[in-house]
Amino acid sequence: MRVRVRLFAMLRHYLPDVPLGSYAERDLPEGATVSDLLASLQVPEREARVVFVNGRARPPDWPLQPGDEVGIFPPIGGG
């Protein structure tokens, strides 16, 4: 299955060629989880503080569906 993914802030260097705001596409086996996606991107799980799937924060064992849009963030803060 194919999912769309964006990495933000300090994680951007794991997908250095993707322009700001654009999605990368990733092909994963059926039943793959957020964890599997992180592994395929070589993003260590400890660096991914919050992972959104279709706008909702999801845990590492969350099963992905074809067409899911995933946003991955390191620890960030501001205000």
């Binding site: 933000f8 802030a9 300090m10 959104f52 706008g55 946003g71 960030i76 803060g77 501001g78």
Partner: peptide
């Protein structure tokens, strides 16, 4: 995060 991207680092996460 704050020293590199400033507080506007939050734009993308709130949008997401």
């Amino acid at each position: 995060g704050l020293n590199t991207y400033g507080t506007a680092i939050l734009i993308n996460i709130l949008n997401e």
